[in-house]
Design a protein around this nucleic acid. Structure first.
Lengths: 145, 145
DNA sequence: ACAAAAATTGATTTTCATTTTCAATAAAAA
DNA sequence: TTTTTATTGAAAATGAAAATCAATTTTTGT
């Protein structure tokens, strides 16, 4: 099942309607680079679809998040960003404090240690968030944008 | 050097003044439990000092953060929380999604793996944030508040 | 101690991302 | 097609954080 069908199925199961706007927003969300803010996606959509409003983009991103197709992220700049999350497994982020570059990474060792820490405190993990802030190679070399 | 002197020193070095309000707010910040939001600290202060305004609490918490005495944290409820950070070393957090309990932990193994990950991507780490969300022992046992 | 200079206070206003409202419109069901 | 129900989008509301500014307090200079 592809993204579009997944979303249609989610909408159907929840008594929601499949609309042109929702289809367009999903398409643009998938086409655009990851980690876009609502504002950034809204502007990208506007270029080809000037009739779609900000509120609709905002509501549709929340729907995509609820359906599991998008995952909201917060990297400290005051904007909620969404990334495509349907097929990829969990990952964390390296964020450059100079140029804002975002690099995804996975590390099973860290995950395992988290489980140990949680168990030691009697917690059962539901989710976690690890963000590492620093300077990327390009910025360290003075070549950052 | 104690907290109060540290803060006075920071104020002096930056051409800022030692005021009654700043002293009171620092005292209450130290006396109150950790991870309080501006609103929560403001209310605690108000009980004994009804003359201190919200804006002053807000500004003083930012000053404490700048001076290194307090560290701002975001746990996803839309409120910036501050914890005392002058003597303690870095730590991360376990947060219960049921009762909101916050447990601090340290894990050198995780830190070391983060360094390896960062190095692999050419990053030099400035800071990081790890939050593990789940259910605490009390809530799992049905005894959560 | 007194006056002048400089910073702080706190009630209020502003900002800004996000969320809600509601009349008009579109989609699904009858 | 008609009825029912949800969606849209412009505008307004919300709420935490930050800024404003006249009055006040602290500090400095005499």
């Amino acid at each position: 099942m592809n993204y579009k069908d997944s979303f249609r199925e989610y909408l159907g199961k929840h008594g929601l309607k499949v609309t042109q706007q929702r289809e367009v927003i999903l398409d643009e969300f998938l086409a655009a680079g990851s980690h876009l803010s609502t504002e950034e996606l809204y502007r990208a959509i506007r270029e080809k679809n000037p009739h779609i409003g900000y509120a609709t983009v905002h509501r549709t991103l929340k729907l995509l998040a609820e359906s599991g197709l998008a995952a909201p992220r917060h990297f400290g700049d005051g904007h909620t960003r969404y990334e495509c999350s349907s097929e990829e497994q969990h990952h964390d982020h390296l964020i450059c404090t100079i140029c804002g570059a975002i690099v995804e990474f996975e590390n099973p060792g860290i995950e395992r240690l988290q489980e140990l820490v949680a168990a030691k405190h009697g917690f059962v993990i539901e989710q976690h968030r690890l963000e590492i802030y620093g300077r990327c190679a390009a910025c360290l070399a003075g070549k950052g944008k």
